[in-house]
Simulated scan of single mutants.
Amino acid sequence: MSAMALLLCSIGVLSVCLSSQAGLTVEAEPGDDVTLWCQHSLTLSSYIFWLKQTNISVPVYTACKYYSVSSSSSNSCFFITESNRSVMSVNSMNSSLTITAVNHSDSGLYYCSSLEGKYMIFSNTTYLQIRERNEIFSKNTDTATEAVCTANVVTVLVLVFGAVIVVLLSALLFLLFIILKYRKQFREDSDSKLKEEKEEQDGEMMNYAALNFSNKKNRRSHRRVEAEDPNIIYSSVRQWDLVQ
């Protein structure tokens, strides 16, 4: 009777089958030993099952125990054949399923359930994913490639920014050199113009002094001639009188 109820529940014909929230994803490599856990809430002695489901296939029973609440002991179920690599254990709160030397065929969704009256109570689920070693190597290679690419990008950015900084500094220094050269040339031109203007002013002052001196000399000569003229006239008149 119990086996028939389990079969009906597994294909969805039993009236109610309750389920809880999804569990975790466990990843393993081929050859590893994996232990999966689930909780139960049995208050009366009953069966606890571990099931495995792949894709959309019907769940398959992988292990079963009859748990006695009074003695806290469990016995194997005679109607389910367990795998030699699957070891199930039960205590008052949890149940575990240990799969030794896993391989790719062990991948799938695992969950445990307990039979309470006419209901199957399902616990949290765990997805077991067996990765191939070449996938792990490929993943590590991709990670290393990404790291190398990131390092190359950083190096290129550093070189580009360094080149931009060098160009900007060179342009700034060249501009500063042009400004200083222009200021020096402007200062030299200003000094040369001031010197020429000063020389012109000095020349004009010398010409003015020479001209002024010449005018004074001429004036003195005129005065001397005018002063000597009466004597000359007087002497001439007197000589004329003596002759007569």
Rank of each mutant, 00 (worst) to 15 (best):
M1W: 09
S2M: 07
M4H: 10
L6M: 04
L7G: 10
C9T: 00
I11T: 05
V13C: 07
L14S: 14
S15R: 15
C17H: 10
S20I: 10
S20K: 14
Q21Y: 07
A22C: 01
E27G: 05
T35F: 02
C38N: 03
H40L: 11
L44H: 06
S46G: 09
I48F: 15
K52H: 02
T54V: 15
T54K: 14
P59R: 04
V60N: 06
V60P: 03
A63F: 10
C64H: 04
C64F: 08
C64T: 01
V69F: 13
S70I: 03
S70G: 04
S71K: 14
N94K: 03
L97Q: 03
V102H: 01
V102T: 01
V102D: 06
L115S: 01
K118H: 07
I121D: 00
N124C: 02
N124M: 06
I130E: 02
I130A: 01
E135T: 05
S138N: 15
K139M: 12
T141M: 09
D142C: 06
A147L: 13
V148D: 10
T150M: 11
V153A: 11
V153D: 06
V154Q: 12
T155D: 04
V156P: 04
V160A: 08
V160F: 10
F161C: 07
F161I: 01
V166Q: 04
V167I: 13
V167Y: 07
L172H: 14
L173F: 15
F174Q: 12
L176S: 14
L176C: 14
I179K: 08
K181Q: 12
Q185H: 11
D189V: 05
D191E: 05
D191L: 09
D191I: 11
S192M: 14
K198L: 03
E199C: 03
E199M: 07
E204S: 05
E204R: 12
A210G: 00
F213V: 03
N215K: 15
N215V: 14
K216R: 12
R219Q: 15
S221C: 02
R223H: 06
R223G: 04
V225K: 05
E226V: 02
E226I: 06
A227M: 10
D229Y: 12
P230R: 03
N231T: 07
I233Y: 13
S235T: 13
R238M: 13
D241R: 13
D241Q: 09
Q244G: 08
